[in-house]
């Protein structure tokens, strides 16, 4: 049974032959905040068109790792990253890579819904506009509609596109943020506990959305909820105290983990 679901997952990744496509690769990644080391030699591959869940107790470094993937750590004073992180084989910390371009390719959705205090329309069209992806009103309308449809929000807000995005409910705001992220057509979407500020019904909607987005995007999601990781992800990586404990197919991690720490965590003995 487990083997079957794992096989199905592998198939969904639609790898050529049996080899899955690796979208992002982290090799010996260490992160320091000043003198304090937060991540120790993490080696983790992110597969294309799959949802990778990062789990682990608070302060284990999963959010830190997520933020290294689009260099959001650059904005933190004293933060230093060593090791290699590649996107399609290119080192994203290389001088030749521009951080603005990287973030256009690797989008991010944050823990707390953070729409701009502008209209829904403006929220979505902002990214494409600064990147020069839209040239006229028709293209803008188009990108707003497409992004909202993909984020499953269009029907709820189509009559009030020009009302402030901050007037939506929490779940709608988070889907607006997802729509905003996909409006710039990223290749990878990073989600940092996207449902932790939402109620169960809104959470279910966002989870469904993540499930659908997987077909077009590579998704990395940090979550505190083991059930959520099990529901939405195909691959799971377990962090503990800054170390990557174990990484593998979600079904295997949750049923037959190799490491006793993973076993303890998923059965609720700590964390």
């Amino acid at each position: 049974m487990n083997m079957m679901s794992e096989a199905a997952t592998e198939k969904a990744v639609n790898a050529p032959a049996d080899e899955p496509v690796i979208k992002m690769r982290g090799k010996d990644v260490c992160v320091f905040y000043g003198p304090k080391q937060a991540l120790y030699d993490v080696n983790l591959n992110i597969r294309e068109n799959a949802v990778t869940a990062l789990i682990g107790p608070s302060g284990c470094g999963k959010s830190t790792f997520l933020r290294t993937l689009n260099r959001m750590n650059d904005t933190i004073e004293n933060c230093r990253v060593t090791g290699d992180i590649t996107l399609d084989g290119e080192d994203i910390y290389d001088q030749a890579i521009d951080v603005v371009e990287l973030r256009a390719r690797v989008g991010m959705v944050f823990q707390k819904p953070n729409p701009f205090p502008k209209s829904i329309y403006e929220n979505i069209v902002y990214g494409p506009r600064i990147h020069g992806l839209v040239r006229n009103k028709a293209e803008m309308d188009d990108v707003v509609e497409k992004s909202l449809i993909r984020a499953g929000l269009f029907n709820e807000v189509k009559d009030r596109l020009h009302e402030p995005g901050t007037g939506l409910s929490g779940g709608q705001q988070q889907r607006l943020c997802i729509a905003r992220a996909i409006a710039v057509s990223p290749e990878v979407i990073l989600m940092d506990e996207p449902c932790s500020a939402l109620d169960p019904i809104a959470t279910a909607t966002v989870e469904e959305l993540i499930h659908e987005l997987r077909e077009n995007y590579t998704i990395v999601i940090v979550t505190h909820s083991m059930q959520q990781a099990a529901r939405v992800s195909q691959r799971t990586a377990m962090f503990h105290l800054g170390v990557l404990v174990e990484e593998g197919a979600t079904a295997k991690i949750f049923t037959n983990p190799d490491d006793p720490r993973t076993q303890d965590y998923i059965t609720g003995r700590f964390g």
Partner: peptide, 8 residues
């Protein structure tokens, strides 16, 4: 963070 996150 939102602005930087979409590549501003």
């Amino acid at each position: 963070a939102a602005a930087l996150g979409i590549g501003a």
